[in-house]
Design a protein around this nucleic acid. Structure first.
Lengths: 132, 132
DNA sequence: CGGTATCCTAGGGGATACTG
DNA sequence: CAGTATCCCCTAGGATACCG
C-alpha cells in the first residue's frame, strides 16, 4: 500500500491496481466483438446494424447488440435510429472511438506479421509433449 | 465467398473471418492477465512466479499459471525452472513477446489519456436513463 | 515456492421465438 | 430491420486443499 500513484499517472509501471486505466481499458475493448466492431466502423464509415453484422463473421445478434450498447455507453459510437418502416439504425464512431483506430490498426499489423511465429511456437510446444 | 483474401493478407479490411490473424491475436492476448503479464515482464525484466503475482493485483494463482502456460505455448515467454529447494521458476519475454511491448505501451498511453472521457460518457449515459 | 487438483458459481454466449 | 426475451449450455475464474 506504500506506493500510492498519482491520479492520471496510475498504473505508471510499478503496479497494476485493479482500477488502473490500463486494466479498465482492457475490460472495455479487450472484448473481441467490441474491437472488431470498431475496426469495421473505422474502415467502412457509418454502418447499419445489419451491415455490421455481415462484416463480422460468426457474431450472434445478442453479442453484437450487447457490444454496441456497451460501446455507446462508453462514448465510442453513436447510435442513430430512423423511425421509418422498417426501422433503420446507424452506428458511427465518435472522435473518441476513432482515436482507437491507430492502435487497433497496429494490432492488426502485428497479427499479420507475427501470428505465423505464434503458430510455429504452438506446434513445437505441442509436439514436445503431446500430453500437455 | 466471392472476396477471397490472400494468405498473409487475410482479414485485409473487408471481412473478419473466424480464423483471421487479427481475431486470433485478440484471442491470444486480449486476455487481461496475459497482457498485464507481458507488460510487467517488459518493465521489470525476468521475474519469478511470486514476483509476477505480486505485480498484478488480484490475479489468482490459477489464472496466472494458466496464462503463463498459454504464453509459453505461444512463444511469448520462456519458463526456466531451477530445481532447488524450494524450487525457483523464472519467466522472461522472448523476442516475439518483446515485440508486443510497443503496442501494449501505446494501449496504456491511450488508457491514461482517454479513460476519463470514457468515464464521463458512462456517467452521462447512465444519468440519461438510469433504468438501462 | 510454485505449482496441481477439485469444487463451485456467475456470467459469456449460442439458438430460437417473438415484436414494433 | 433491428431488436428484446427466454432458455440453456459451458467456460472463465475464484476458493480451497494438497504436493514435490
Amino acid at each position: 500500500m506504500g506506493t500510492r500513484v498519482e491520479p492520471g499517472m496510475s498504473c505508471a509501471y510499478e503496479a497494476f491496481t485493479a482500477d488502473c486505466p490500463s486494466r479498465r481499458l482492457l475490460e472495455a475493448i479487450g472484448n473481441k466483438w467490441v474491437s472488431l466492431s470498431i475496426v469495421a466502423l473505422g474502415v467502412h464509415g457509418p454502418l447499419r446494424y445489419g451491415e455490421l453484422a455481415a462484416q463480422i463473421e460468426g457474431v450472434s445478434q445478442k453479442m453484437l447488440t450487447q457490444s454496441l450498447r456497451r460501446m455507446e455507453r462508453d462514448g465510442l459510437v453513436t447510435r442513430t435510429v430512423t423511425p421509418s418502416v422498417p426501422v433503420r439504425t446507424d452506428y458511427e464512431l465518435t472522435p473518441l472511438g476513432r482515436s482507437l483506430l491507430p492502435l487497433l490498426h497496429e494490432l492488426k499489423d502485428w497479427a499479420q506479421e507475427h501470428m505465423p511465429a505464434v503458430d510455429a511456437a504452438r506446434a513445437e510446444y505441442d509436439a514436445a509433449a503431446p500430453s500437455r
